[in-house]
């Protein structure tokens, strides 16, 4: 009988956590918007966006270069080096851009968000805001949430563009694929709505999930050093799993059914 009771208790706890996370998201989304929030959001855009630029650009460049190298060796067997452009571009725009950006974002910015909010809680800064009659959801959570939502699609676009340039660097400048065919076959194959816009939609969904998990884990963390380190780890693990799982669902919805 004991395990039934435990299952029940576990389920109730899960439901309660989901409820708290939902309430927090609701609070952050609909916290009375004010002009004071815009500079705060810009500041967070710097923290989560600009400070993630370096890792995004370097990763995008190398992933594009590696794909060109791998793709070239395979395609050249069939005499189809001309298809290198679309191969690199489609993989980046549809999958790697949004997914790798989201994973890097979870590791770089998500963990930092969790740790920051967790520490603000541990050092009583959140309580202190409440006692100063300032809603921490509006002052602390909302700007970070919106900054994440804005920054991630931007980073994903930059990632894909840099990757395509990296593919050009290796494929065209180094391995000698014809530059004209690299671009023109890419242009003939890549579709604006189906590939570019769907990639942006994917990264918006990932942005929502990763930022939400990161902020909630910080907000709901146990305010001790152990609790915060645990919350930070959970942010990276949960958001990576959520991104990969959701990516399959989104891909099935977008590309699976014609």
């Amino acid at each position: 009988m004991n395990w039934i009771q435990q299952t029940g208790r576990h389920t109730l706890e899960r439901v309660a956590v989901t409820g708290r996370a939902g309430l927090m998201l609701f609070g952050a989304l609909f916290a009375a918007p004010s002009l004071k929030n815009i500079p705060l959001t810009v500041r967070q855009l710097y923290v989560v966006g600009v400070q993630s630029l370096a890792i995004i650009i370097v990763s995008g460049l190398f992933i594009g270069m590696v794909m060109a190298l791998q793709g070239y060796t395979i395609l050249t067997d069939y005499g189809a080096e001309g298809s290198l452009g679309p191969m690199v571009a489609l993989s980046l725009l549809r999958e790697l851009g949004p997914v790798v950006t989201a994973l890097l974002f979870a590791g770089r910015a998500g963990s930092a968000l969790t740790a920051e909010i967790g520490l603000m809680k541990a050092t009583e800064q959140l309580s202190s805001l409440e006692m100063m009659a300032v809603d921490p959801l509006r002052r602390v959570v909302a700007p970070r949430f919106w900054a994440g939502m804005i920054a991630m699609p931007m980073l994903a676009l930059i990632f894909s563009a840099v990757g395509i340039l990296g593919g050009h660097l290796v494929g065209v400048d180094w391995l000698g694929v014809d530059a004209g065919s690299y671009w023109s076959i890419m242009q003939a194959t890549v579709d604006w709505d189906k590939d570019v816009i769907n990639g942006v939609i994917k990264s918006l969904v990932f942005a929502l999930v990763v930022t939400w998990i990161a902020i909630f884990k910080g907000y709901d963390s146990i305010p001790t050093s152990e609790g915060i380190s645990q919350a930070t780890t959970q942010t990276v693990v949960f958001s990576s799993l959520a991104v990969l799982g959701l990516d399959f669902v989104l891909t099935a919805l977008m590309f699976g059914i014609e």
Partner: peptide, 12 residues
């Protein structure tokens, strides 16, 4: 709460 104020242990 605007009429009350709290000094936290850590300063916060």
């Amino acid at each position: 709460r605007r009429r009350m104020s709290m000094l936290f242990q850590s300063g916060a």
